[in-house]
Simulated scan of single mutants.
Amino acid sequence: MPEQQTSDLEVKDAQVIFSSLWQELEHELGRKNMRFPKEMILLGGAPGAGKGTNTDYIRKVRDIVAEPIVMSSLLNTPEMEALKAGGNMVGDREVVNILFREMLNSRYREGVVLDGFPRTKVQVEVIKMLYDAMIELRTEFANTKYAVHFKQPIYHIMILFVDEKESINRQMHRGREIIEHNKRVRESGKGELLEERPTDTDENLARNRYTIFKEKTYDALLSLKQFFHYHLIDAHPPLDEVKANILSEMEYQSSLELDPRTYDALSPLPLASDITTHARRDLVYRLDRYEIGNQDLFHKVIALIENKIMPIIKPHAISGRALINIEDALLSEPLALSMLIDIFSERGFFASVDVHLLEVPEHFDVTTGKIHCRHKKIYRINIRFKGSEIRIG
């Protein structure tokens, strides 16, 4: 019971903070200017997990141009320093206030990576309230000229995770590298000194930092899992593998990004992944069906490829590309074109066909001055395949 009472109190605190701050901002800016980022990635990471290393890649994957908002830097502003110098704590209201005002900057309009927020249960509740408020604004302005500024919000929870042992090892390794770097700078007088943090040189402090991450940041973000899109990235492997994990998690998210009405309109069309999943099986089925149900046409297409097309392709074995123009009437049959593409696919080639209709002059009527033409179909077959490697030496 006491735990539930604490939770209720935190929710109430969040409601008071959010409501008062929202009213304050709305009074200053006007409701139509409450334009928060369309996409927000709430990024958390164990110490040494590589947040700084991977943030730019995360932004690249999600096409986010703006620099990340790093809460630790945001709270080092003169305003916050003055607050702390006066003996005051930087509480949830101060944190939310400075964050909201920063996010309303137009440079974050399309998206932002938020590093270090939320860190408390009150902040967790505030972020949920912000999402609900953005949905409300979107509904309110849906049929107005301001609709373009209030898009479907997308929130991601992303955690880069390493265990305690790996975290401590990485912090200690970083500390040794920084100390060695600073030693070289002092001796040579060249370069810039890097910050030497106690947590990077004292194992007990590094362990304590990891504990704080698990008990505060990790738990805060994990509590949002049921509300927003959640990504737990294993950050133990080498950097390239971690990037591959990030890409596979976030590369294709159309059902999350699109307006629900747009998504419903597009949903009858298959995803590329749906088509490719059983592509080989379907290809085999079609080829067998050609042989059984359209044998005569099928064998004519095979003969056309063998006798007229392959002799042109073979000299292009090094480049792996060939463009063939052909006029054979056999290809006027639509099924024959499908067969041709499937046959090449089965043999490991990538084939595409464009049909060009040309007018060829046949004779000139001296009486009327009219030129009589016949129509000629040219089939341009573009063939690609893995070319041969040329070895030198």
Rank of each mutant, 00 (worst) to 15 (best):
A142G: 02
S267T: 12
I318P: 03
Q226G: 13
F213P: 05
N245V: 03
E164R: 11
L358T: 15
H372E: 12
I154C: 00
T262G: 00
I127F: 07
R286Q: 15
I292T: 01
Q295G: 12
E362W: 04
T367E: 14
V90I: 14
R321I: 03
L358S: 09
E166Y: 00
Y131K: 04
A317S: 03
E125R: 02
Y230V: 07
G369Y: 05
M129V: 02
P118I: 04
E10T: 01
K51L: 03
Y131M: 01
F344I: 01
R374W: 00
L9S: 11
G86Y: 07
A14T: 06
Y131A: 00
T53F: 04
N105P: 04
R209N: 12
S223R: 03
Y285C: 02
R174A: 00
H149T: 02
A265F: 14
E24D: 14
I179T: 09
N76L: 13
Q171I: 07
D365M: 03
E333M: 01
P153A: 06
D296G: 02
P334N: 04
R321G: 08
K165F: 11
V95D: 05
H299F: 11
D132F: 07
F213L: 06
I371G: 08
I17Q: 06
S19L: 04
P260I: 10
V124K: 01
K128G: 07
Y290D: 04
M40C: 14
L297N: 04
V355H: 08
I341Y: 09
Q171V: 08
H299D: 13
L337Y: 02
F364E: 13
V61S: 07
F117D: 05
T262Y: 08
D342N: 14
L256I: 01
L74N: 08
S352F: 02
H181R: 06
M158Q: 09
K165I: 10
D259K: 04
R170Q: 11
N307Q: 15
E362P: 00
K308G: 05
M129I: 00
E164Q: 11
E215W: 06
E102H: 10
Q5I: 07
I390L: 12
K216D: 13
D328P: 03
L221Y: 03
P315H: 15
G52P: 06
L358E: 15
T53L: 05
T262P: 00
T139K: 01
E102T: 15
V65C: 05
K128T: 05
D274F: 08
A272Q: 12
R186C: 10
G87I: 00
D115C: 00
V124W: 01
R174S: 01
M310I: 14
R170S: 07
P260C: 11
E196M: 08
K38C: 09
A82G: 14
V148L: 11
V90R: 13
F18N: 02
E187I: 03
L130C: 09
R35A: 12
I305W: 09
G86T: 04
D63M: 14
Q5P: 00
G348S: 06
P334R: 02
M339T: 03
I246G: 05
L323Y: 07
T201S: 04
V353L: 10
E39Q: 11
Q253T: 11
P361R: 10
E196H: 06
D56R: 14
G111S: 10
N97M: 10
E241K: 12
G111A: 12
D92N: 13
E94N: 02
E3F: 12
R281S: 13
A351C: 15
S338D: 14
